[in-house]
Every structure is written in C-alpha cells, then in structure tokens.
C-alpha cells in the first residue's frame, strides 16, 4: 500500500481530477498529438512560443489515466515562462526521475518530484512521460502523432 500511496500522491490525484490549463490555447502556434496505444490515452498539447522562444502559454486537451493527466497538467504549470532550452533540460530531469537513470536535481524538478513514485511502477512510465514527448514534438512542430509504442 505504501508504494501505491507514493504513486498516487494527493497532488497527483488532485491534478488528475482537476487538471490545470485543460483548454485550447487561443494564440497557440505549436501543437502536437500524443497517443498511448496500450491504454488508449490521448493528449493534444498547445504551445504559444514568442519570438524569443519563451513559452508564453501552454495548455492541453485529451483523456487519460490519473498519472498521465496529472503529469500533463503539472508539466503545463512548470513550463510556462520557460525557454525552449529550459523546457528540454527539464524533460531530461523528469525522464531521469521516472526511469531511475541518472541523478535528477530536486531543485530543478520542484513540484514535479512528486512523480518519483512512478519509478517503482515501470509499466506506468509511459503514462508519466507521454505529455513530455508530445511537448517536444510540439516544440519541433512535428506533424505525425507521438506514439509511446
């Protein structure tokens, strides 16, 4: 039960039930679609990047499990105001946290550290990272949907 509580922390359950930035971004100039064929999770990420490459707005729509919805919701909060390079660097930190590879820096991760419990559930790693992969595709304006498989 303890590792379940580590996985489904209050913050994650809250974001899973009440996702933030769950809308289309009216001025979005980048977007991408992500899909996890294993569980059917779908996510569409909308980004508004300004000329300096700073994320002015980021939002999402879609359907998914608690882990994937919370991860997407918290990602949108974490990335607002970040530059492209900062967004990619944060994904590297997050990826290290989820997969247990490398040494993630808790200061850089901030609130995202609540996803540390996912490490004990390797078959849920894709739920947590789908949004981030999709965000990277949106940054690059890739047309084909991101698939976790």
């Amino acid at each position: 039960m303890d590792d379940l509580r580590d996985l489904y922390q209050e913050v994650i359950l809250d974001h899973g039930k009440h996702p933030r930035n769950f809308r289309k971004a009216p001025a979005a100039n980048r977007s991408a679609h992500g899909y996890n064929p294993l569980c059917g999770d779908q996510v569409e990420i909308f980004l508004e990047l300004d000329a300096a490459g700073v994320v002015q707005d980021i939002s999402f729509q879609g359907s998914g499990c608690a882990i994937s919805t919370a991860s997407t919701s918290m990602m949108t909060q974490a990335l607002k105001g970040k530059t492209l390079a900062e967004a990619r660097a944060l994904f590297e930190q997050f990826h290290a946290l989820i997969t247990g590879t490398g040494e993630p820096d808790p200061e850089k991760l901030g609130k995202l550290a609540v996803f540390s419990g996912v490490r004990e559930f390797p078959n849920r790693a894709k739920c947590a990272t789908l949004a981030w992969h999709t965000m990277c595709a949106a940054l690059e304006n890739r047309a084909e949907p991101v698939s976790t498989e």
């Binding site: 379940l4 996985l7 039930k17 499990c65 608690a66 882990i67 849920r124």
Partner: peptide, 14 residues
Amino acid sequence: EGIHPHDIGTILDR
C-alpha cells in the same frame, strides 16, 4: 466513474 481503467489495473496488481 472518475477512475481510469489503467489506474484500476495498477492498484489491483498491487
């Protein structure tokens, strides 16, 4: 209602 099947599967697995 309110709980994705994937989350149900993980909790039952434990």
